[in-house]
Amino acid sequence: MLELNDVSKSFGGTAVLTRVSLALNDGETTVVLGPSGSGKSTLLRTMNLLEIPESGCLSINGDSVTFGGSLTRKQVSAIRRRSAMVFQGYNLFPHQSVLDNVAMPPVLNGKADRAASRARAVELLGKVGMSHRLEEYPDNLSGGQQQRVAIARALAVEPDYLLFDEPTSALDPELEAEVIRVMVDLARERRSLVVVTHNIGFARRVADRIVFLADGGIGFDGTPEDFFASESERIRRYLNVFDAV
């Protein structure tokens, strides 16, 4: 279980998250929706400690940190090994081949030796449909291919939770579909996914749960059915934007 309790985060005096509490269950796909600037990415980055809130606490499957004071390297490491992030901009290491991008992290984390890690990387890259580009450098791949490699890299460190930060926002529809297919497969395997996205179709089709952020807090937390049937003016206004498109 991933739990955030009373988490607050501000940037330059502007509150982005205000006393947010959330408990996510293992094996569920949670989609985080909300208008731009509502704190979706900040919430997700808090789960991986890329953002450190001013107060509150975070725990993932037994490892926990309390915000407000300085965190030790050991505390940060314990939380980070529980999750892995897939970024909007992929953030693959451009100087490493596709295979090395996926095989290196577990070796550096001390989770596997080089040979085992490479074998596992080949397997994961096959899973995301990238077996044919193992020795290629990221710069020679399309955006969709890079994102699939990034997903394989995130899987390689065997996280409890996979965090997706608008993973298809930078992709055109055709490439977006490639990535969505991989994510749907992961959801069907009952992996624990937390997905920040504007892809309403994905939320409707795949989410077990939708968290809607608005005005620094959680405006909705429930099933997709309830979310899309909601009469809340804030949610209707948000969904109408997509209907208009």
């Binding site: 991986n48 400690l49 890329l50 390297r73 490491s77 980070r80 090994r81 999750s83 892995a84 992030m85 970024f87 901009g89 953030n91 693959l92 290491f93 992290p105 550096l108 984390n109 890299r153 460190v157």
Partner: peptide, 15 residues
């Protein structure tokens, strides 16, 4: 070096 590179290293728990 883009900030995203350092963030990727952090999320992968590199020292």
């Amino acid at each position: 070096i883009p900030r995203g590179q350092l963030e990727a290293a952090r999320t992968l728990n590199f020292t």
